[in-house]
Design a protein around this nucleic acid. Structure first.
Lengths: 174, 174
DNA sequence: AGGAATGTAAAACGTACGTTTTACATTGCA
DNA sequence: TGCAATGTAAAACGTACGTTTTACATTCCT
């Protein structure tokens, strides 16, 4: 595994577990197993590193929700939280931690959330056989809610969202 | 307005807008208009200050959602985001920023989320005339989702959640 | 064989952190 | 009148921040 991947993986883990601001570069060099000089050669800066972490995560997440039905979307979320745990949305957390004042991060977050919104709309359209902006918004809210409520309610928040989405989707189909 | 209230109000504003970790004590003394010595006399420590901010916010928020129907719950959220803006849930953000490692904060967050969960269950029970744990979980997820999705989708996320909750509640009533 | 590329360890850069202290001014109550 | 309480400004505490630098070792390609 090359140094850049090792660094990005270590950074994602620490930023996700302890927060972006609370994670110092010394902790990062130690976790990545490299000197600070090498780290900066690959990272550029802390903000750029976070932007790359978010880009990687976006790739991974969007691949996981490459599905054709609303129910499969929530099944994918169940898998995601089982593997990754429940710490809310790293994109929104990063944005909030920095008050939206870090351009590299704000850009990565905006790009992800735009792609995610489009993906949800596509899945709803594929499931219904037609576009439905209202249902898409409801499914997006349920997905976001499950992601964050799982923080303190556990996995049952995701299954509740899945059940609610099934009801709303069936209703929209007829 | 006494110094403690002025301090708490200034702290809530800064912590909410720029994040807990990113807000330094010098910025806080300046915003609260008092010396650091006075600030520490009233705050105790940064973590204790945040805990008091969260306690205040819990009081204000729980008063706002003192309602008897599911629809009124989401109407209250619409009012809340109109007044307070859309920056997600300060409790979950604080918890995530500190990785759950700050006891004062973790305690305040746990207390709030327990009270909030109970309140949602009570509202659902009052609306239906009977308890319904499944519907309560769905309403909670919709509420949490609206809170966070409003960050990037705007107020329409809240109305989508309201509409979805209305459908699920009507269905549960019959 | 030789030299760019890539890595290391460790110290230093200046700044800011959360917190405490020193020295002094203003109040309000007994 | 006097003194405790409460406030101020400003410097200092030690630590940690993100970042750069210095000096040196090790690969890898031609």
């Amino acid at each position: 595994m090359d140094m850049t991947s090792k660094l990005t993986a270590a950074a994602e883990r620490l930023f996700d577990r302890h927060g972006y601001m609370a994670t110092g570069m010394d902790r990062l060099t130690q976790a990545a197993g490299m000197s600070s000089r090498t780290l900066y050669k690959h990272a550029g800066s802390k903000a750029q590193l976070m932007a790359r972490v978010l880009g990687e995560r976006d790739r991974r997440f969007m691949a996981q929700i490459e599905v054709g039905t609303v129910d499969a979307l929530f099944a994918a979320l169940e898998d995601w939280v089982r593997v990754e745990g429940t710490r809310g949305c790293l994109f929104l957390r990063s944005q909030a931690e920095t008050g939206g004042d870090t351009p590299e991060i704000a850009g990565a977050v905006a790009a992800h959330k735009a792609a995610f919104g489009q993906r949800v709309a596509d899945i709803v359209a594929a499931d219904l056989g037609r576009e439905d902006a209202d249902l898409a918004e409801q499914v997006l809210v349920l997905f976001e809610g499950a992601t964050h409520a799982a923080d303190y309610r556990g996995a049952k928040a995701v299954s509740a969202a899945r059940a609610a989405a099934a009801i709303l989707t069936r209703r929209a189909r007829t």
